[in-house]
Design a protein around this nucleic acid. Structure first.
Length: 585
RNA sequence: GGGGUCGUAGUUCAGUUGGUUAGAACGCUGGCCUGUCACGCCAGAGGUCGCGAGUUCGAGUCUCGUCGGCCCCGCCA
């Protein structure tokens, strides 16, 4: 049977038309005489009616139907009588009066209902992913994903971007994440790496004169998983030659606005605000601040650094900071609530969590007795303490204080409904430092990656004062999630060599591992830059999903396994021998 | 590597202080039912309480280990 119309399509004015529908049996209601079967495909559900008097054979067959049988039905669409209309269904004003039924396949009883009502554990969903994906919610999610990709291709294609594929089998790189390795049979003892991103190849394409490149690119990173991190994920990756960072961010802003407008059906006219890295870290304790709510960090180091409270004084004297957030109305928090926040803070490196509760005109607090009248007055003024507030303090190194208060403000906002439901707070974070000192390894690390260009004005301080050098880099943030990031790249071999040197990548190592890049940069590389958007995260946010697993057809579990195929798996020793590999576990 | 949480019927869950035969809902099977759409009514089947040790007269319940799902720290743009 060949379909003439999808299940979700028939409407009242199709009354009388002859149609053939195919799909899955969503449910069967057998009244002894007439039988109703809801037939489902990805477009929706329509009711088919089997009448024993007008179509005896079809009716007999319908009695044997079970959930998820695959059937074709042919008959006449008929407008339902007014009392039989189902206003809950898009097709509820009409039904198919079946004349002919063909069972295309049977189905075992399914382990869970193919609808969105059941709350399923992820275990079951992933083991039966092919059924999970049949559910309307997942159908919608993957179709939103497809839509985003098509919009991106259209948008970028219209603007002269060329889609170029880059290798999946490439060479391992020293910086960044752990690589997935692929042994080379032809070259025993040698390995390919799966790309962490097409970064170097797109730069080579710039050198090659493809001045606008894009790719919807799979990327691989062998690191531990999170709700928003999978070992393989997808980026909308793009690169432009002869463009400033403003040109690139404007272009990407236009792309993102187009995507969100088309998918969500609402407009995003306002330009995305810009915030420097320093400001983001100071006010929000994060380089991807969630600006949908307040709870901003207030610096109190100058005010309380000399106080009698040892923890504060020690932090200030040790070069650290004292900061606080004011939880408006937080005086209602119980002692247990505050203790729980304390242990949450400990998880981010805090040694404790000092607090002041302003209630009934008094301050309840374990620390207030250490504060002078002047310190108290200054504190009240700067933090804006009013009756009913709860102030939480962190005093430690800059890094710890940012991490602790940055995490606390997000947790408190989430737990207490401070986040507006339909807010979409886009934000550009700019002026990142180029490098960061790693105290453990005693060397500088690139905050973005080693190919990020320093701002020209800062370039002469690269050797003398590296930490003051800003990168010409930009991240796009939405509601506290990093949607993507990019930068202007280094396009001169001499600058690239200086940055490698700063990062402790010696000349010989650089030549060995990045010789091809340095080589390419020395043959007329144009100035260029680009950006990559995390497709999975973007689609997850558009779908309202907490996890990117809900927008990936076949994701891995947190232990990096596929419950459906049971990958990864062991292999034959013969296979290993061909590759010249021996296991040593 | 670490912290937290969960694992009981096909599914989602309940299961008291350790105590007889481990329950509910939905689903499933059979029967009845001609306008339902969460159809209804009657009957029934269905359990390695993740797995393994231990404590105990007795373990779904307590202890230890282990496997697995999820969340987080570290790690990772």
């Amino acid at each position: 049977m060949e379909r003439t119309v999808y299940c979700g399509q028939p409407r009242a004015n199709d009354d009388g038309s002859e149609q053939t529908l195919v799909g899955w049996v969503d449910s069967r209601r057998d009244h002894g005489g007439v039988i109703f079967v809801d037939l489902r495909d990805h477009t929706g559900i329509v009711q088919a009616v089997f009448d024993p008097e007008t179509a005896a054979a079809a009716h007999a067959g319908a009695g044997d139907l079970r959930s998820e049988y695959v059937v074709g039905v042919r008959g006449t669409l008929r407008r339902r009588s007014p009392e039989a209309v189902n206003p809950k269904m898009a097709t509820g004003e009409i039904e198919l009066v079946v004349r002919e039924l063909e069972v295309l396949n049977v189905s075992k009883p399914v382990p869970f209902a193919i609808d969105d009502s059941a709350s399923l554990t992820e275990n079951v969903r992933l083991r039966y992913r092919f059924l999970d994906l049949r559910r309307p919610l997942m159908q919608r999610n993957l179709r939103v994903r497809d839509k985003v990709c098509r919009i991106a291709r259209q948008y970028l294609g219209d603007r002269g971007f060329v889609d170029v594929e880059t290798p999946m089998l490439t060479r391992s790189t020293p910086e960044g994440a752990r690589d997935f390795l692929v042994p080379s049979r032809v070259n025993p003892g040698n390995f390919f790496a799966l790309p962490q991103s097409p970064q170097l190849f797109k730069q080579l394409l710039m050198v090659a004169g493809y001045d606008r490149y894009y790719q919807i690119a799979r990327c691989f990173r062998d690191e531990d998983l999170r709700a928003d991190r999978q070992p393989e994920f997808t980026q909308i990756d793009l690169e432009m030659a002869f463009s400033s960072s403003n040109t690139i961010t404007d272009l990407v802003e236009g792309l993102v606005k187009t995507v969100f407008t088309d998918v969500l059906g609402r407009s995003f006219d306002e330009p995305f605000p810009r915030m420097t890295y320093d400001e983001a870290m100071a006010r929000y304790g994060s380089d991807r601040p969630d600006t949908r709510f307040g709870l901003e960090l207030v610096d109190l180091t100058d005010l309380l650094g000399a106080s009698e409270f040892k923890v504060f004084r020690a932090a200030a004297e040790g070069g650290g900071v004292i900061k606080a957030i004011n939880v408006k109305g937080g005086a209602t928090f119980s002692r247990k609530d505050i203790d729980d926040l304390g242990s949450y803070a400990t998880g981010f490196g805090a040694k404790g969590l000092a607090w002041i509760k302003a209630q009934g005109g008094e301050w309840q607090s374990p620390i207030v007795k250490f504060l002078s009248a002047g310190e108290r007055a200054g504190l009240a003024a700067r933090v804006g303490i009013e009756d009913g507030d709860l102030v939480l303090f962190a005093a430690d190194t800059v890094k710890v204080v940012r991490a602790v208060l940055g995490a606390l403000r997000c947790k408190i906002a989430a737990d207490h409904g401070l986040i507006p439901a339909d807010a979409w707070n886009f934000l550009w974070v700019i002026d990142f430092p180029s490098v960061e000192w790693d105290a453990d390894e005693k060397r500088y690390f690139a905050l973005h990656h080693p190919f990020t260009a320093p701002k020209p004005a800062d370039l002469d301080r690269l050797e003398s004062d590296p930490e003051s050098v800003r990168a010409d880099a930009y991240d796009i943030v939405l509601n506290g999630t990093e949607l993507g990031g990019g930068s202007i790249r280094i396009h001169r071999a001499d600058v690239q060599s200086r940055v490698f040197a700063l990062l402790g990548i010696g000349e010989e190592e650089a030549r060995h591992k990045f010789g091809f890049l340095l080589d390419a940069l020395s043959y007329g590389a144009p100035p260029h830059g680009g950006l990559a958007l995390g497709l999975d995260r973007m689609v997850a946010m558009l779908c309202g999903s907490e996890s990117i697993r809900d927008v990936i057809a076949f994701p891995k579990t947190q232990r990096a396994a596929c419950l459906l195929t049971e990958a990864p798996s062991t292999v034959d020793t013969a296979q290993l021998r061909q590759l010249g590999l021996k296991l040593d576990l």
